[in-house]
């Protein structure tokens, strides 16, 4: 029943299943047809389902998003590919002012079952606009559901859940993990793990480490390294960024008393701030230390040769783990 797939192939098989199961599912995007997308996620789908179902579009993100909305008015279930994270801004108005608000505006009369696929994040040595993490803009916007996958199984299950959702879903794909392999069981569905739920990726007792998307692997590596040091780190893979499954995070923090949050996006006004504030609000007296954030800096995404400094890595995460545990860390030497 299960097979080994890369994360990109796991999304591709999910899209294939959705196209086969529902005539109203259409794929739209730049280069997704004959080329199969710049990351080959949609490879072979136009060949098998035709250009009416898998549509190469003009090079205009607002146009793609706005016409997808029109198709949804007509009863279609469009899946839009935005080629790269940094290319989504021309579509921002259609996403934030139209897609997110139409259900609310029309008091539930108009549903927008649109999935917006966005390859995001850094770590691939690319040029400007190809490595960004814009998820907070969308998590901040009421009316959108925002999710991200960290492994092939979730990638497959969650893209199908996103397409099945009657609400618009921003589906962030960790592009540097596209080639990561894992077992994918196509029969796993909502009853196993709803799209809005977080997942404890590694159990632990000393520190809760919250991550999502591309940094889940980094967090798991950090937890393994910490274990060598005799520390037990629990890794929570958020999966959903709107809503956030705070119950799962809270349960973990109540157990560990310590919280570290990591994401590639800039820190200021980011999801780490929201998680720190909400968890402090929910279980202040269970916290043994102030929550710590390990994030991208409050700078534009830097040139490729600098991204290793910008991106949270295993050592910066372990430094924050030391901090919440009151152990010696980069801030204790009086250098800052």
């Amino acid at each position: 029943m299960s097979e080994t797939l890369t994360l990109s192939k796991a999304i591709g098989t999910g899209l294939r299943r959705a196209l086969a199961d529902d005539d109203k599912v259409v794929l739209m995007g730049e280069d997704i047809g004959r080329l199969g997308g710049v990351f080959r996620v949609t490879e072979g789908l136009q060949r098998d389902f035709g250009p009416d179902r898998v549509m190469d579009t003009p090079l205009a993100e607002a146009g793609i998003m706005g016409t997808a909305i029109g198709l949804a008015f007509r009863g279609y279930r469009p899946v839009v590919e935005i080629q790269f994270d940094g290319f989504i801004y021309p579509a921002f108005d259609q996403i934030v002012a139209q897609l997110a608000k139409l259900h609310y505006r029309t008091r539930g009369n108009v549903r927008m079952p649109i999935t917006v696929r966005v390859p995001y994040g850094g770590g691939i040595g690319s040029v400007e606009h190809h490595s960004e993490s814009p998820e907070a803009y969308f998590a901040h916007t009421a009316g959108l559901r925002v999710v991200t996958c960290s492994n092939p199984q979730d990638a497959h299950t969650m893209i199908r859940q996103a397409i099945a959702s009657d609400d618009p879903v921003m589906f962030f794909e960790p592009k540097r993990r596209y080639w990561a392999k894992g077992e994918v069981d196509e029969t796993i569905d909502d009853s196993t793990l709803p799209m809005g739920s977080a997942r404890v990726a590694a159990e632990g007792t000393d520190v809760t480490l919250v991550a999502y998307g591309p940094l889940v692997k980094t967090a798991l590596d950090a937890a393994a390294a910490a274990a060598d040091d005799g520390l037990s780190v629990e890794v929570v893979d958020l999966r959903s960024l709107s809503p956030i499954d705070f119950d799962t995070v809270e349960a973990s923090v109540r157990k560990t008393g310590r919280l570290v949050i990591t994401h590639e996006a800039a820190q200021f006004g980011g999801l780490g701030a929201e998680i720190a504030a909400s968890i402090t609000d929910r279980c202040f007296y269970h916290l043994e230390a102030a929550p710590a954030r390990v994030t991208g800096f409050d700078t534009p995404y830097p040139a490729a040769k600098l991204e290793e400094h910008f991106l949270p890595d295993l050592d910066r995460i372990l430094d924050a783990v030391d901090r919440v545990l009151g152990r010696e860390n980069s801030l204790t030497g009086g250098l800052v």
Binding site: G66, I69, R74, A97
Partner: peptide
Amino acid sequence: GAQSLHATGYAMGC
């Protein structure tokens, strides 16, 4: 002007 794209998408659906 936002609705001009919605009309076009709807027409593509027709």
